[in-house]
């Protein structure tokens, strides 16, 4: 789990470079909330040694907007562990990604604390609120490749960390590939060439918001969702397609957390299908 934490360091570095010290406060808050709830639940500090609560708090803290107050971040971290992991039996048993449980709970329980914390409009939010502009007109006022703006550098940082994890064999390629293909194909199907109703081109969706962060650090959580290689591929595909669906028709600009949670819920079904379709005698 330390390796996964190390792989997110480029993301943290880019955020600190772009937004100053601000993202560190919610990060520390989420970490404190996650660690405190885990230690209080087991009434031991040694339980923190496996690093799972630390990683959950870390990933959640990285996902929270810079302006989120540390108190709300701490609450989100506590909810992540208290709702997403501990009630299911702790390490290795949670069916949903705890960090995304915390994020989704925070977004639904205190949305203003998170949305007000956004420093400036994100590309996803401004694309959603572009009122009558075609995609190319909107692009003209937005910097960066595919209009992904400042998020593009973050996505590259996620990509770098994720590729390193793949190289180190800490994650399998199934879920990230599924997520990318699912998101890109859904975006391609929804893209009509750039009219004012269009949802944006596939490459924009891959590099905007938290797509690549989710593809390499969230949907790759080994515990939650599917456990078999084909199951993970299918879960990634579903999560990617759902992400676009939440972005285009959902109430929030981005919808990675909800997409991941729904795909996690479908994980055991994908596993059952994968096991049932498996050839009876594996290669000898």
């Amino acid at each position: 789990m330390g390796t996964v934490g190390l792989a997110t360091l480029p993301v943290l570095a880019v955020r600190l470079a772009q937004e100053g010290f601000a993202p560190a406060l919610p990060l520390l808050g989420a970490l404190a909330g996650a660690l405190a709830v885990e230690a209080l639940y087991y009434r031991r500090v040694t339980t923190l040694r496996d690093g799972s609560a630390l990683l959950t708090g870390w990933l959640l803290g990285l996902a929270l907007p810079a302006g989120t107050s540390p108190v709300w971040a701490l609450t989100a971290g506590a909810l992540a562990l208290g709702l997403g992991k501990l009630p299911f039996g702790g390490l290795g048993r949670n069916p949903f990604n705890p960090a995304m449980v915390g994020y989704a709970a925070a977004l639904l329980l205190f949305p203003l604390a998170l949305l007000d914390g956004q420093t400036g409009a994100t590309p996803l939010a401004s694309l959603a609120a572009r009122s009558g502009l075609t995609v190319s007109e909107w692009r003209a006022t937005h910097p960066g490749p595919w209009g992904a703006g400042s998020g593009f550098a973050l996505s590259l940082a996620s990509l770098a960390g994720g590729l390193w994890l793949l190289y180190r064999r800490r994650i399998s390629w199934h879920a990230p590939l599924g997520y990318g293909v699912g998101l890109a194909s859904a975006a391609l199907l929804a893209y009509d060439g750039g009219s004012s109703q269009s949802a944006g081109p596939p490459l924009f969706h891959l590099f905007a918001g938290s797509s690549l962060f989710a593809a390499f650090f969230i949907i790759t959580d080994p515990v939650s969702g599917a456990h078999t290689p084909p199951g993970r591929l299918a879960m990634g595909l579903l999560a990617g397609a759902l992400t676009l669906s939440f972005r285009t028709t959902g109430p929030f600009p981005d919808g990675v957390a909800f997409a991941v949670l729904l795909a996690n819920a479908a994980g055991p079904a994908f596993d059952a299908l994968a096991e049932a379709r498996r050839r009876q005698t594996p290669r000898v």
């Binding site: 390490l91 290795g92 080994p222 515990v223 456990h227 078999t228 096991e275």
Partner: peptide, 23 residues
């Protein structure tokens, strides 16, 4: 000994192509 977190490290190393964690 820790619980199985389904990391899948056992899957690519199985010479028989099994899914040890599922087994």
């Amino acid at each position: 000994m820790m619980p199985c977190i389904h990391c899948g490290a056992c899957v690519p190393v199985c010479p028989r192509g099994l899914w040890p964690q599922q087994l």
